[in-house]
Amino acid sequence: MSDSNFSNGMENDFPKLDAIEFATYEWQMWADGIGELGQRKLKAATVLISRIGGVGGTVAYQLAAAGIGKLILAHAGEIKPSDLNRQLLMTHDRIGQSRVETARARLLALNPRLILELHNENINATNAQALIKGAGVVVDCAPLFEERFEMNRAIVRQCKPMVECAMYEYEGSLTTILPGVSPCLACLSPVAPTAWRREFPVFGAVAGTVACLAAMEVIKLITGVGETLSGTMLTMDLANMSFTKRKIHRNPNCSVCKGSG
């Protein structure tokens, strides 16, 4: 799999835009490399987002704004007050109610043409393969390493690209996994770091920054524009506004992706 393979296709493979869509996306179709065909690729795309919290919720919102055709969202549970400093799809008036149903209302208010498939569950060993099957691109925004590793195994098995994005305190990290081409999550770290805790220091603006960059990775994967972060880890520290790109490599003995590609 390569970036360009994913965005290839015959023009007739992509649905036509209606008049409202032309009007809505006109300004982004002016972007170099997008045009009408790029917009039609976005309309044809299905993206799975694991968790729609501080990072995933903003990824979903940006992709809905960009005219992605379909989003599959997986996130269990109901809204808590402590979600509301960063989970921008959630609202105070819906505390105690379903996160994914709240997201539905917010996303459709922005883009009523968006097709949504909602799952009131988190990624696990039982559902990962089935959820990923329906998506062309996956975005991993889960706060637990167990979920991230499960997702990683599933995308490698199905050879689906995954944007891997995370944050901690003032920092963020981002890479794009192309199975068989670039390192998978287990190549980087086969086990969770010992110090990681479920509750972590977080600002919504940091999560949102990472999310917007992740949404751009998705848009690039789908349209074939630019270069993705495949084989590169972008890290950022918003405490001092430093951004660093680092080269990463596949582990030839990786227990997950060895032999793929």
Binding site: G54, A142, C165
Partner: peptide
């Protein structure tokens, strides 16, 4: 040399 670990906040 940079020493770090993966992060997982989402």
């Amino acid at each position: 040399l940079t020493l770090t670990t993966l992060i997982s906040g989402g």
